[in-house]
Design a protein around this nucleic acid. Structure first.
Lengths: 351, 351
DNA sequence: CACTAGGGTGGGAGCGCTCCCATGTGTGAT
DNA sequence: ATCACACATGGGAGCGCTCCCACCCTAGTG
């Protein structure tokens, strides 16, 4: 039943073996690049494979070998954020790029809500993937710990804390924030406000820390009135900007911890009649499309999302290899398991 | 060997059966929701499943049942465009959303270059997925025809021509273009230029046709000098705008067939000292982030990318079901296989 | 010239599931 | 009470592959 079309079944290993006049095992060896095959035999098998257009059946292989040759990218957010934030699509693109060189497949999964996460955890547990890439995780995310417990090779895209147990890839949020603030102070701004991200995201904390660090380095007193707590959304940016203007009408610069928030801030600044950058300089974070198309062009801290995706993939492949080798090294290369990528300040007209 | 950790193997069907005191077949029936099980037995099995934390092994199921419960989204572009164009991520998000309700998984695949495409075709042929969603295809794309030949259920995101053999989902490019141009003429613009997309993309042709259609309806003569042939890129938009200004300095409106091109056009208009919208009105297509953040806000034809993703998924599920039923209806519901979604003109300050 | 290594090779066993047929068990009709 | 039929159930036979053991043959050794 359910034969998929008249074009006939795909050839099997056995058929290739018959055609090449060898045994099943030998064909398997050739397919998997084992050295224990004579050149003559190998050639014969390869010919048969080509003639028959043989492609191994993944399901059978997965069942027999207990690996799936695929990894999952898990985005624990509603898909809606997946659109709006270039962070995600950049990351996924980088992963895809890195994967193209291996022969792994990429499973993309969204998991909003606890129920979904439960389902997902079970799913991943069922050995459906060789490893997991966790993107954008909040400090209290339960999924990460579950994966850790279940011993599934996992790499996380931003550590949840300073001592993240899972291997991770991150941008240097601290340095990035410092560069942004340093840029503002070096241009003579003295009353630099910040619109933070949600502080249950470790990266957002680090950006705030970078802000504080740079002010200290520049000998500028930290002023609580210049700190507004946002959530990475445009609306949050609006709200924070309004608050800031109310509390500190004299501010002359704003560092928004995401471009989206910067965009919200810009709207409010404009409504209140502040000119950018003349009255208030504005800097964002992400260097997304928005930054390039905003008016005036938004100075922003670039995150190499693509490279991050690549780095995550590389790390994960390591982890998977390690796990397969029976985790002979529980003493792993500590620091190497936490990759931190540099940021770059893209200077435009807004500052 | 290669046991993935000390936490032990996942329980199997057989173990659940033993625990529940029934046979393997019965458990399978319960898992798959067959009605041919008594309530008492069903309850017992469900309890055993819960206690053991049983999750079916996908590979085994795929092998036995000859289906994979997963579909592939194929993006035949370099990942680079995947980032820059919200079209893609919107679509993928919609697919993810629709899939969440089924229990299918989403495989994301990029295929740039012919070699990659060959590999991919073989891959898909090997029954690794139940169906394929093809996003953004050029008229001469070979992959689509191959999938058709191989009898793999496939849905394409924009038909390649008026008589696309594959089921498709598209936005109403013709009507969208008309609404944009009509909007411009209704505001008194008489010299409306167009920057087209690459004409080997059917949708781009339709937008041009809509432009012509609306001008005709408004009794405005079609002027070749007002048509510039772009490629959906920002740089292309710049080039075309420059050309147009040279050929037709008196134009008072521009319809760019993508927001990205509109952005390029805006830059050139500004450089040449034309005010938007006072001197030249500008309209884009896509209603992407760019449109919302451009200065002035860009009037743009919105494509419901999310809904498109959803619609594609629904169509594909149909196709898959049909294929499984032994394609009893080669006489399929013709028109229903081509879904066209309406556009909406988002009016902003640029026009 | 017998004897041992070892590289090459064939093929059995089994991965966990679905499919389906054979077997039981209960119900209503005669 | 008897027969027929429907429904519920158990379990064999594979799905196509990998793993591994046994075997063979050749080449080197004493």
């Amino acid at each position: 039943m359910a034969a998929r079309g008249t074009h006939g079944r795909r050839p099997t290993l056995e058929e290739v073996a018959a055609r090449a006049g060898v045994g099943r095992g030998t064909v398997s060896r050739v397919i998997n690049g084992s050295p224990r095959v004579s050149d003559r035999t190998r050639a014969a098998v390869e010919e048969a494979v080509a003639e028959l257009g043989y492609v191994p059946n993944t399901a059978a292989r997965a069942l027999a070998a207990n690996r799936t040759d695929s990894i999952a990218v898990v985005v624990p957010e509603a898909e809606s954020r997946f659109f709006s934030e270039p962070y995600f699509s950049g990351m996924v693109g980088g992963v895809g790029m890195a994967l193209a060189e291996s022969n792994l497949q990429l499973l993309l999964t969204f998991a909003r809500g606890e129920r979904e996460q439960d389902r997902l955890a079970a799913y991943l547990a069922a050995h459906r993937v060789d490893g997991v890439l966790l993107v954008s995780v909040h400090a209290d995310d339960p999924l990460a710990d579950r994966l850790l417990q279940m011993d599934i090779p996992t790499v996380i895209s931003g550590p949840r804390s300073a001592d993240e147990p899972l291997p991770s890839v991150d941008t240097d949020n601290y340095a990035g924030a410092r560069s942004a603030v340093g840029h503002l102070t070096s241009r003579g701004r003295r009353s630099v406000a910040i619109i933070t991200g949600p502080l249950d995201v470790y990266g957002a904390q680090r950006r705030l820390a970078g802000y504080e660090g740079q002010l200290a380095a520049d000998g500028i007193a930290y002023d609580e009135k210049l700190v507004a707590y946002g959530d990475f959304t445009e609306e949050g940016g609006r709200r924070c900007m309004a608050e800031l203007l109310e509390r500190s009408p004299g501010l002359d610069a704003v560092f928004a911890c995401s471009d989206l928030m910067a965009s919200g801030a810009r709207q409010v600044l404009r409504e209140k009649g502040r000119r950018i950058p003349d009255d208030v300089a504005l800097v964002g974070f992400d260097d997304s499309v928005i930054a390039r198309h905003m008016e005036p062009g938004l100075t922003s801290v670039r995150q190499p999302t693509r490279d991050m995706g690549r780095a995550m993939t590389a790390l994960l492949l390591d982890e998977i290899a390690l796990a397969a080798d029976g985790k002979r090294s529980s003493v792993r290369r500590g620091a190497e398991r936490h990759v931190v990528l540099p940021t770059e300040l893209m200077i435009r007209a807004s500052s």
